[in-house]
Write a protein that binds this DNA or RNA. Structure first.
Lengths: 194, 194
DNA sequence: CACGTAACGAGACACGGTGTCTCGGTATAG
DNA sequence: CTATACCGAGACACCGTGTCTCGTTACGTG
């Protein structure tokens, strides 16, 4: 289907596409999201402006694509066999992602724009990076086949407190992942004994 | 001190200041935060552009001032005498604020900008609207003089899940305030028996 | 009452980003 | 070999920014 559309004429350059994504990665670290412009991206990538617009229509789309893969990777934690340790590791990864990682900075910027830009909100809704990563850990911790707690509620309970802490500008150093993990696990076990 | 600085010359017009704040309130509802410009604000207020910049240096500052009072008011709930009811009422007010109120829209927009703009982050940190309102309810619910749970942790546990739910674009209708309130209260009572 | 001073509304200004368009050139299908 | 669509480059009109300059106005002081 995709190939049929572009059967005629010069094919799109994957090279140009990769150069743009790479440029965005660099610029994000060098100058930050706010100072990033479509103009700057094109120049940094050594690519025509029209070429950028041919692949993506907004800065948000490029950034999302450039950081989504990194994000999923950074939020994946190895199972330890111990529920509490898994949760602690996940929350620490989450906090590190949100506060230290370039991909996390991109995610926060996008999440910010989503608050007053419907297009960005829909973009973010298309791939629930935080929710997916949390779901993986939660399903690992919850052994029952039919958990008594809805997964998305559990997601909000697990992620919510840390997420609020960070995005509302509180000091990450004062956030104790183990405490949040214990609280969450306690709640889980009250609802689901054994 | 403040009066001494402006002892000479024509005094600043409180009328102009009020006109700007009022214009921002209107524009927020009419065209939304994203479409709001300093130019547009000045014109809507019937005020010179320089006058706007004399009082505030950014759009964020005006919006913050224009909506902070509304926000505090909308997040204040009457005590019912029953802890659970208080928490439910608060969470419902919080969700309504974040999803329906113009002041809430302003707050979300500011919070969004704060994710990639240090100045806005500092502005928001200067008055912790959500945290303050939550603290009031929490201190009402926690009867002990020396609660075994730090207030700001409790704040994150109470607000976090709902906050994450909304800002990550999940459907507010699927959020059950009573469930979150019960969960929070359960956690509080485990830590603090009696 | 006159004078100095600073804020007033209005708008000109240079600057920079936006998204579109046009250019000559180029890679691929038929 | 021709048609076609993409390539990099950059011109273009548009808009918002923040500063500056008008002539005007309200208040303090002498």
């Amino acid at each position: 289907m995709l190939e049929e559309r572009g059967r005629v004429g010069r094919p799109r350059s994957e090279r140009a596409r990769a150069a743009v994504l790479h440029a965005v990665d660099d610029l994000l670290v060098e100058i930050g999201y706010a100072a990033m412009t479509m103009k700057g991206i094109a120049e940094k990538a050594g690519v025509g402006r029209q070429t950028v617009y041919r692949w993506w229509s907004t800065k948000a789309e490029i950034l999302f694509e450039a950081s989504a893969a990194d994000a999923s990777h950074e939020l994946a934690v190895e199972p330890t066999g111990e529920a509490l340790d898994d949760l602690v590791a996940y929350l620490e990864a989450l906090v590190h992602f949100l506060t230290r990682s370039p991909a996390g900075a991109a995610y926060r910027a996008l999440l910010g724009e989503a608050q007053h830009d419907v297009a960005v909100a829909e973009l973010l809704a298309s791939k629930d990076i935080l929710g997916d990563s949390a779901r993986t850990v939660i399903e690992r911790v919850v052994r029952e086949d039919t958990p008594s707690i809805p997964v998305d509620l559990a997601t909000a309970l697990l992620i919510g407190p840390a997420f609020f802490w960070i995005t509302s500008g509180r000091d990450p150093a004062r956030l104790v992942a183990r405490e949040l993990a214990e609280t969450f696990l306690r709640e889980l076990r009250i609802r689901e004994p054994r």
